[in-house]
């Protein structure tokens, strides 16, 4: 009898916790919106996190003013993005990026933070055998990233 009560109580607590975690994560689960979703319901001045692919050939960066312009796309829609600053190392054309900022009434996304999204692919350099060690020595000599 006591055991049944104990198990029932435990199950109720477990279910409640599971629901709370699920609901909590789901609410903030849309970590970023896609360009198509932003285009569908963009409100000027509202803060968004926008994620997509940096379209090849779209990046321009002016080192003196730090003005960074590029276009994010998701295959159906594109959004022009403007930012002032230096992007992270992995930011680049043909790669994923997530940007935080606001939608401007002038028809572009004003980003205050650029995040590079990397894929789950890891590759060895082409001559994989001893290249790793040599590369390491090279980077230790202050030549690499």
């Amino acid at each position: 009898m006591r055991k049944t009560k104990f198990i029932t109580g435990g199950a109720v607590i477990a279910a409640a916790l599971a629901y709370m975690i699920y609901a909590g994560v789901t609410q903030s689960a849309v970590y970023f919106v896609t360009p198509a979703e932003l285009r569908a319901s963009a409100v000027a001045g509202k803060a968004y996190r926008l994620g997509g692919m940096v379209l090849p050939g779209s990046v321009t960066w002016e080192p003196r003013t730090l003005a960074l312009h590029f276009t994010l796309g998701d295959g159906t829609a594109t959004v022009p993005v403007r930012h002032k600053g230096t992007p992270p190392d992995l930011f680049g054309e043909g790669r994923g990026a997530v940007v935080e900022g606001t939608w401007s009434a002038d028809g572009y996304f004003r980003a205050s933070l650029i995040l590079a999204k990397h894929s789950e692919e890891y590759k060895a350099p082409h001559d994989a055998s001893q290249a790793g060690y040599k590369e390491l020595i090279r980077t230790l000599q202050g030549d690499g990233r």
Binding site: Y122, A124, A128, G132, Y133, T139, R145
Partner: peptide
Amino acid sequence: FAVAPREATQGTV
């Protein structure tokens, strides 16, 4: 550090 290669995209990090 010695056997695994320096990864092509990310580098040593």
